[in-house]
Each structure stands twice: as C-alpha cells, then as structure tokens.
C-alpha cells in the first residue's frame, strides 16, 4: 500500500502565496518571460475547433509574434508544444513535423475520462499513430475518490503502454489529475504519487533506465474550476522532488488552466526556482534545476501567450501595447 505524506494545507497556501511577493525587474523579468514563452503548451480544446484553427495555432506557436525582429530586434522562442484534440493531430503534423515544436494530444476520453478503458486506449493509440509526441490523459476521478487506487494505477500503466510507438519509443505521457475535483491537497499528493509510480513501473518493465522522454503530471483539464492553483502545483512539485530524491528519476510538471497573465507565469517560475533547487547533475546551465527548462516544466494555456508577448514588447519598447497588436490564433 502506497503511503503518501500528509500535506499541511495552511502552510502550503502560505508558502505558495509567498512566491507572489518577489520583485523581478528588467533583465531578469525579460529572461523569465522568454522562458515562460518557450514553456507554453499552446492549447485549443473547444468543440468548435477545426483543422484550419489547429493549423493557425501551430503557426502562432512556431512564431508567436510576427513583428518580433522588426520591432524588438530579436527572434522570440517558439512554444514547447501545441495541445489539441486527437482528431486534429494530423492537421498539426502538416505544420509542425520537423520543427522542434511538439504535438500534444489530449486523449483517454478527455475531459471526463468516463469511457470504457478499451475506448480510451484506442483514443491514445490513434493519437500516437497520427504523430502526437505527447499524450495528455485524464485519470478516472470517480474511481480515485472511491479509493480504488489500484484501478487508477492500472489504467495509467495501460495508457503508458499504449503510448509506445512501433519503434519502441514512448510518447511523453502527461497524467491529468484534475485537482479541482480531488477535494483536498492530501488527495492531490496521493494521486501524484500514484501516477509517478505507475509511469515508472512501465519504464522499468520496458527496460528503460533514464527515459529520454520525461513523463509529466498535470493539474487540470481546464474544463473544471478551480483549475491550476499555486498551492496545488506546489504539492505536486514536492511529490516530484521527493521522487527524485528517492530514485534519482525526473518527472515533469504542467500546471494548466487559469494561468492567464505573464505575472502569474513568473510567480510559478519563482515557485519552481525555490522549490526544485536540487543540484541535478547535467543541468548546471540552469543552476541544477531541470524544471527551469521546457523539457520538464510546461504551462498549459492559450491567452497567456499574448500577455507574455505584450509584457515583452512593453519591456523592450517602453510603450504599452494593445490587445489587437498580437495575432489571435
């Protein structure tokens, strides 16, 4: 039986709030904004999505601000990935193949997960077959809240196995806990631990020692309120930190939903900086903190992108920008 540590909810909230009090100015702020931009999983998950909209979003992700070189004198980074429904993966692939920007697909009956396991697994295989680099799965929250933890772990293992491509390489798996439905921070911690262990077990059975494609845990679908919050993200980061200290294995973190402003994104980065100071070997270029790279930390967001661009443009030009200065898709 898995024993997760209990969480002091009051202190988690206090500590999370303390990360919003740091003062970050000029060059550090600019560096933080560029980093946040490169960590984006630019997302569209609406019923009205179409291949055209997905392609437009891919172009936006590749080159977030068309006038960057003319106006700011620098090429801003591309986002980390474009996150869409499985049916749109093929359309994204037309634009993104070979660009370095990943295609992330939600799957497993997103956002509810209330479908038979066989259907959810087919969903995953189809998305991986179409070329998705990353799969965002939802857990069965009903089973979790009923205490059927083994069922959750088993489903995560099945999905992770389905992420394996014919060449043996796994698509990155991101396990969405949907923390807005988990009621308590203790549950968030427990679900994090279950997901992290279940994914590692499949790596072990496949004989993968240090996966080149890290798995992630992710807060939310964005369809349930509250979505990502700082206390929840802090608890999940601590689960990732404890797992690293225990096993030396790295797991990624993705807060998603509700992060709309550049300021919020900087608060999250401060939290990552101050929580994940682990001196991980091989990551000296980011002060030993792998979670300060897009490889291990992502923001799931859509409106955040343009707010980051707005703030970068303000910092570089000294003029406040209008919303219509930045393309929508």
């Amino acid at each position: 039986m898995l024993r997760s540590p209990t969480v002091d909810a009051v202190m988690a909230q206090e500590r999370a709030a303390s990360f919003t009090k740091r003062s970050i100015k000029s060059s550090a702020k600019l560096a933080g904004l560029r980093l946040a931009l490169s960590m984006l999983d630019l997302t569209t998950l609406e019923g009205k999505d179409s291949p055209e909209k997905a392609r437009a979003l891919c172009r936006k992700g590749l080159h977030p601000f068309e006038r960057d070189e003319a106006m700011l004198g620098e090429r801003l980074p591309s986002v980390a990935a474009i996150c869409v429904y499985p049916a749109l993966v093929a359309a994204c692939r037309e634009i993104l193949a070979g660009t370095g920007v990943n295609i992330a697909s939600v799957a497993t009956g997103f956002p509810s997960g209330q479908y038979p396991l066989s259907v959810r697994l087919d969903d995953v295989r189809k998305a991986v077959g179409d070329g998705a680099d990353e799969i965002d799965m939802v857990i069965n929250r009903g089973a979790f809240l009923a205490g059927r933890y083994d069922e959750i772990a088993q489903e995560i293992r099945e999905v992770k196995r389905a992420c394996r491509r014919p060449d043996g390489v796994f698509a990155h798996l991101k396990v969405i806990l949907e923390t807005g439905e988990l009621e308590t921070l203790d549950n968030v911690r427990r679900a994090s631990d279950i997901a992290i262990r279940a994914m590692a077990e499949v790596d072990a059975e496949a004989g993968i020692d240090a996966p080149g494609t890290p798995d992630f845990i992710k807060t939310s679908t964005g369809k349930v309120q509250p979505a990502a919050t700082m206390p929840v993200t802090l608890v999940m980061l601590e689960a990732i930190r404890d797992w690293y200290l225990e096993t030396g294995r790295l797991v990624g973190m993705k807060p998603a939903g509700g992060i709309r402003t550049a300021k919020q994104a900087l608060h999250y980065l401060v939290m990552v900086k101050e929580t994940m100071n682990l001196d991980v070997p091989g990551f000296e270029h980011v002060a030993g903190n792998p979670w300060l790279t897009p490889h291990y930390f992502r923001f799931g967001a859509s409106t955040l992108c343009n707010d980051i661009l707005r703030q970068i443009a303000w910092l570089k030009t000294g003029r406040y920008q209008a919303g219509y200065d930045f393309s929508e898709a």
């Binding site: 000294g318 003029r319 406040y320 920008q321 209008a322």
Partner: peptide, 8 residues
C-alpha cells in the same frame, strides 16, 4: 507620456 504612447 505613457498616456500618449499607450497603444490601447
């Protein structure tokens, strides 16, 4: 000055 240069 900020009012005048503000694009919004």
């Amino acid at each position: 000055g900020f009012v005048a240069s503000h694009r919004d």
